[in-house]
């Protein structure tokens, strides 16, 4: 069966929420994706200056579950944290895949692009017999990919390694591409880590309909298009000026340091980990989906906004 882009967007934005689950992809969409998967272009996932948190978050996807994502939907040809091979056999397979699928494959970049000491600060492997810096890997793979998914705060905007004084001279993929004059389109999926639905949903959109509509920070509008504070379930407390004074206190979290007013993402309705909880219910929002995190949002536990 096929599904229209319009229906897809509707499901991503809200259907799962109405059903009381955080799953974005209903069985019909999964079915359509599986059918398409045989002919789908491969996805290669590489890691620069990262912590593997984006991968660990991706593994938490519920609908579809990660086994379906890995085995039926995405043809994942390279992923250093899950792939069976190691060393030469793993490394060479990445360059062989890129050669065979030039201009067609999608590249997911986890972690920041470390450029310090001419790239020596991050050398992700020996590819085709040569030790390669992450700079070179990004140039080689980035210029050949159909599009890049820049994952997390790191891939999108540089992340915590790029926080002051940026000792490893790190930056996000878009900034790196500008510097190296690489024209491949980049989709940012920020968050530290990003919600698995944002990753799977964006990949699904890319595979079925191409690059989704992006906001001015390069993020898919369908996930990052709403303001957290404006839609927060604790918003009425803010209007009543009832503010939580300590953790566990009832009220709006702005005085504890909540950065909801400056943050744009749909956590307020999607929830986290199959919707068992989310940041503001637990304590506060730290602004992890926004460019400039963490420096522009420090100190974290002091009122700076709202």
């Amino acid at each position: 069966m096929s599904i229209s882009r319009r229906e897809f967007l509707k499901y991503c934005a809200g259907a799962g929420v109405a059903l009381g689950t955080s799953g974005i992809l209903l069985p019909e969409i999964v079915g359509a994706l599986e059918k398409a998967a045989a002919g789908n272009p491969p996805v290669a996932w590489i890691q620069g200056g990262g912590c593997t948190g984006c991968s660990v978050s991706l593994l938490n996807t519920v609908h579809p579950n990660i086994a379906d994502v890995l085995l039926k939907i995405i043809s994942l040809k390279y992923h250093p944290t899950v792939m069976a091979a190691w060393g030469e056999k793993a490394a060479d397979s990445l360059y062989d895949m890129a050669e065979k699928n030039k201009g067609k494959f999608f590249l997911a970049v986890e972690g920041t692009v470390v450029t310090g000491a001419d790239g020596k600060c991050c050398t992700p492997g020996k590819f085709k017999g040569k030790e390669v810096t992450f700079i070179k890997l990004m140039v080689d793979m980035g210029s050949q990919a159909a599009a890049v998914l820049a994952l997390g705060q790191c891939g999108s905007y540089g992340g915590i390694p790029a926080a002051k004084p940026n000792p490893s001279e790190s930056m996000g993929v878009s900034e790196f591409f500008k510097l190296y004059k690489i024209k491949t389109p980049v989709i940012n999926i920020p968050g530290c880590p990003p919600h698995p639905d944002w990753i799977v949903g964006t990949i699904a959109h890319v595979l079925m309909f191409g690059v989704p509509e992006l906001d001015s920070h390069g993020r898919p509008k369908l996930f990052y298009g709403t303001n957290v504070h404006d839609n927060c379930p604790y918003r009425s407390y803010y209007e009543e000026k009832k503010f939580a004074k300590f953790f566990g206190d009832e009220g709006c979290r702005v005085e504890l340091g909540c950065k909801g007013p400056e943050s744009n993402a749909d956590c307020w309705k999607r929830g986290w980990n199959n919707k068992v909880n989310w940041c503001i219910h637990n304590s506060l929002c730290l602004g992890c989906t926004e460019p400039g995190f963490p420096d522009s949002f420090s100190p974290m536990y002091v009122k700076t906004t709202g």
Partner: peptide, 18 residues
């Protein structure tokens, strides 16, 4: 995935907790 639901119950979310 379910152990991470347990982390999130009091952690707010997982991975990386509040």
């Amino acid at each position: 995935q379910k152990t991470h639901q347990m982390v999130a119950l009091f952690g707010g979310r997982a991975p990386i907790v509040y």
